[in-house]
Design a protein around this nucleic acid. Structure first.
Length: 277
DNA sequence: AGGGAAACCCGAACGC
DNA sequence: TGCGTTCGGGTTTCCC
């Protein structure tokens, strides 16, 4: 389930390649095959085929959980949602189950958008901001600092967990890394944002960055049957560890539902701060 | 404004 | 073993 570190891992792989094969920068798209039309959010199919064919992939960047392919003319964006993946394979390989969109490259390879649950989407647009325009700041952006983060927290009375997962507040955190970052910062998921002190905001800011950087360093997490390659799942402090000891204090990790999401935390390390405390 | 829920999906895990 | 049921997870949309 790709969050920022997993998306970044895929981005780096497609850009720089691996020991086995080079990346795809500079490759020309010779043909596109839309296997499940629902995976294309925009434009309409005919226009998509007309505009994508013959274009070169110049650059691959990331904005929040979106992958942004810069083409000769326009941008191709992917959101992998829960179960999506981008796979590089020989053009003559058999179309695997759950392939939704495939782009044939001039060099004899094929980029496949594979998505078991059909949640993922792609867009071909002239300006990526048409898709990513409402996203909040990038947590790893050097120009974004703890002070701005604190100011943003001050403006909200929402619970930290849903707020951090709100992509218009901060771009890139999903359920897993949010739980991990809150534990690292010793903040309860239900803490009202405006009650977070400057010191706590700084700790949370640092925790978010460290959690994401650790995830990226480990090439992301490979959980479920989805994305494979990373091993950060072996270093989770709280996520999926209900009933197991907190790595800091040994108290059993608890699980609750916050904003309809499974939320893991240590009741001892992350006490709930309320108004008046 | 913000919380809750439903919808979109399907494989895995669970219960019997 | 095999069947039916429940669950999860990112985002959008709708309702209160």
């Amino acid at each position: 389930m790709p969050e920022l570190p997993e998306i970044e891992t895929i981005r780096r792989f497609l850009t720089a390649g691996s020991d086995e094969q080079p990346g795809i920068l500079g490759e020309r798209i010779t043909q596109a095959d839309l296997i499940w039309p629902g995976s294309l959010a925009a434009p309409a199919q005919e226009e998509f085929f007309r505009r994508i064919t013959g274009q070169c992939i110049l650059e691959i960047t990331r904005r929040g959980k979106y992958l942004v392919f810069k083409l000769d003319d326009g941008y191709l964006l992917f959101h992998l949602r829960m179960s999506g993946d981008l796979i590089l394979e020989p053009s003559e390989a058999e179309i695997a189950p759950h392939h939704r969109l495939v782009l044939y490259l001039a060099g004899g390879r094929r980029l496949a958008f594979n998505d078991t649950r059909k949640f993922g989407r792609s867009w071909l647009v002239s300006d990526p901001r048409q898709v990513t325009g409402k996203l909040g700041p990038e947590p790893l952006d050097p120009d974004f600092d703890a002070r701005q983060f604190y100011d943003n927290l001050q403006r909200s009375r929402r619970q930290l967990k849903p707020l951090l997962m709100d992509q218009t507040f901060l771009a890139g955190l999903g359920n897993i890394y949010t739980d991990e970052a809150l534990h690292r910062a010793r903040l309860h998921p239900l803490t009202p944002a405006h009650l977070v002190s400057t010191g706590q905001a700084e700790a949370l800011f640092t925790a978010i960055r460290q959690t994401l950087e650790d995830g990226i360093r480990h090439n992301g997490s490979s959980i479920d049957w989805v994305y494979r390659g990373g091993d950060f799942q072996n270093y989770f402090r709280v996520y999926g560890r209900k009933g197991q000891p907190c790595p800091v204090c040994g108290t059993n990790i608890e699980k609750m539902v916050v904003g309809q999401r499974g939320t893991h935390f240590c009741p001892a390390c992350q006490p709930l701060k309320t108004e008046g405390m």
